[in-house]
Amino acid sequence: MVSTAGFGTYGVWRGAAALDADFARGVERLGFGTLWVGGSPGGDLGIVEELLDATERIVVATGIVNIWKDDARSIARSARRIEERHPGRFVLGIGSGHREATPHRVRPLAALTAYLDVLDAEGVGRDRRLLAALGDRTLTLAAERSLGAHPYLTVPAHTRHARGVLDAARPGALLAPELKVVISDDQEHARAVARRYLRRYFSLENYVGALRRFGVGEAAFADGGSDELIDLVAANPTAGAAVAGLRAHLDAGADHVAAQALGDDPLGALEQLAEALTLTR
């Protein structure tokens, strides 16, 4: 079992396709508590097992498995296999993805509930899973049926609101948002890196809608995102700015924040971030 405290205060988020054993060992060496496997990893969760095999203590969590991509029973079998091999170090994060990418995505809340019912029946209980969540109903479900919520591409105002929703459903539920960081000698270069990465996400209505609901105006999305928006969701260009961005979510009520380092040298950026956070001391 992984407790909410077991995640540590700071983690690292990276797409499954860009992860390997060396990266995982580097993240553990730097003192981060959790490595988040993004991009809906394959149903056998082989990459999760590879990362756990390569490390000794770090928690590995999926951020997230798409419920429309792999059925709950096959995912449960993979989760049980990994738990048996690495007890207490794996958390299964699931989510309903995006309407634009999944045409058959209908009634996502009901689908998530049904998926959780199967996980219960298959022995992957509440203390071994969490949910991607942006809206209030999904946040409530996350609190009631899992360790908590893992929101992606949000702002501190959303974190503050989410804390209240989670606590109303179940005080103490985990809130673990993600924040992109870009460390560079040149802020304009850092912003350009972030804009290239965010282009696809700014075409997805669930993310854009959540940002609008929490203070981002329509004009801010023009031309790849205003400087103010980019700086808010992809803290840059210094390690100090990244630390401030992470701590803004903690101050708003997050228990844990996952840093996603963008750019050509993510481990180098994470090393600077770990030093600024004093994780390596």
Rank of each mutant, 00 (worst) to 15 (best):
V216H: 12
P237S: 09
L198G: 13
E188Q: 15
V193M: 05
S226H: 04
A190F: 07
L198T: 12
L204S: 03
A190D: 02
L211E: 08
A222D: 10
Q187S: 15
S203M: 13
S184H: 13
L232E: 05
F221P: 05
V182H: 06
V208G: 00
S203D: 14
G217D: 13
V208D: 02
Y197G: 08
G245F: 02
D185H: 11
D223V: 01
R196S: 14
A234G: 00
R191S: 04
R212T: 05
F221H: 01
F214Q: 06
G240D: 10
E205W: 10
D223T: 07
A192P: 09
V216K: 10
G217Y: 05
N236G: 12
A241T: 13
F221T: 03
V233L: 00
D223W: 01
L232F: 03
R191N: 00
D231V: 10
A220N: 00
V193I: 09
E218K: 10
D185R: 12
L211G: 10
L229F: 03
E228N: 08
H189Y: 13
A219W: 09
G209T: 05
S203E: 15
A190G: 04
A210N: 15
H189V: 14
A234Q: 06
L211S: 10
E218I: 05
F202D: 00
N236L: 13
A220R: 08
L229R: 03
I183S: 07
A190M: 01
L204R: 02
R199T: 15
L198Q: 14
Y197Q: 15
R196C: 11
A242D: 01
T238F: 04
L232I: 02
F214L: 12
R199Q: 15
G224W: 02
L246G: 04
R191W: 01
A220Q: 09
L204P: 00
N236V: 12
L204Y: 08
D185C: 09
A190E: 09
G209Y: 06
A222F: 08
V208W: 02
I183A: 06
H189I: 13
A239P: 06
Y197V: 10
V233N: 01
V193P: 03
S203A: 15
R200M: 15
